[in-house]
Design a protein around this nucleic acid. Structure first.
Lengths: 139, 139
DNA sequence: ATAATTTACTTTTAAAATGCAAGTGAATTT
DNA sequence: AAATTCACTTGCATTTTAAAAGTAAATTAT
C-alpha cells in the first residue's frame, strides 16, 4: 500500500485524505446500510465500481483499519469483509452525506431511516452502530 | 463546465458525485469556518491547492449553485465568493467530517466548536448557518 | 472425472484528472 | 511610467481512474 500523506493539521482535510474520492465511502455504505460483506457484493452495486479500483480501495480500507478481511465462515473460499470499530465510527459521516443528498436527489433515503434520524439522531446512529458491532469484528 | 453525471439513485453517491474529490469541500470549509471569500485567500490555505484546480472547483461550485461570484465591493478588482443557501446546507456535512477527523488527527477541531457541537448540535449548526446567511447572498 | 462457472483478484492499455511551472491581462500601487 | 498584485489560463509531465482482458483457485454441473 502507498501511504497516505496528510496535507495539513485540519481534521476536515485529514478525513478527505482518506475518503476524498468517489468510491471508498460507497464501499463503507454498502457494509453499513446493506450488510454487504463480499467482493462480489460490492461489485454488484448500482454504481458499477471497476474491479481494480475495488481491490485497491479494499486494501486501503484494510490497511488503515477501517475493515477486516477474514476467510468466510461458509468455506466457499470467499473472503468476508467486516467493519472494525474505526469503520463503524464513520456511520454519522455517511448518514450526514446521505441526508444531504436526499434533499436534492429524488429517490431519497429510506423514509423510515430519514424520519428516525430527524427525530432522534443520536439514538438512531447508535442503534445502527450496535447492530454492526454485533457482527463481531476485532481490529 | 462539464456536467456531472450521477451514478445511481443513492443519495450518498449523489453527494460524492459533487464532492468526491480532495479539494471542493476544503474550499467550502474555508468559506464556512474561516470566512474566506477571495481566490487569493483560498490559495493561501495550508493544503496548497494548485491554481488551476482552484479555478476549476470554484467554477463547479458556482455552476451548481453552491457559491456565488460577485465583483468585490471594495473595488479592488477582486471577486468575492459567498455561499448560497445550497452551499450553507452543507454545514452539517463539513462539521461531521471535521468531527470524525478530529478524533484521530492531533490538532483536532477548535475545542469550543467541538464542545458546542457535542452539547447541542442542532443549535450550533443553526447558529453557524445564520451567521453565514447574514452575509446575504442570493442564489 | 471433466468441463464450465464463479470468485477474487491482477495486468495491460487508454483516458482523465492532478500537479507544477510559466504566462497573461487588467487593475492597483509605487 | 514601471512594478506589483490579482485572478486566472495554458502547456506539459505525472498520477489516478476506467475499461477490458487475463488468471488461478475453488465450486458446481454434467
Amino acid at each position: 500500500m502507498k501511504e497516505i500523506k496528510h496535507r495539513s493539521g485540519c481534521p476536515v482535510s485529514y478525513t478527505l485524505d482518506f475518503f476524498g474520492d468517489k468510491w471508498s465511502l460507497l464501499i463503507l455504505r454498502d457494509m453499513m446500510l446493506f450488510g454487504k460483506t463480499t467482493y462480489g457484493e460490492f461489485q454488484s452495486s448500482a454504481e458499477k465500481i471497476a474491479t481494480n479500483i475495488l481491490a485497491d480501495r479494499l486494501s486501503m480500507l484494510e490497511h488503515y483499519g477501517f475493515v477486516n478481511k477474514q476467510v468466510g465462515t461458509d468455506k466457499k473460499s470467499k473472503f468476508s469483509y467486516t467493519l472494525t470499530e474505526k469503520g463503524i465510527s464513520l456511520v454519522p459521516v455517511i448518514l450526514e452525506i446521505g441526508l444531504w443528498g436526499a434533499q436534492f436527489h429524488p429517490p431519497g433515503l429510506n423514509p423510515e431511516l430519514k424520519a428516525a434520524l430527524q427525530n432522534d439522531r443520536q439514538d438512531t446512529i447508535q442503534a445502527i452502530q450496535e447492530k454492526l458491532r454485533s457482527k463481531l469484528q476485532p481490529g
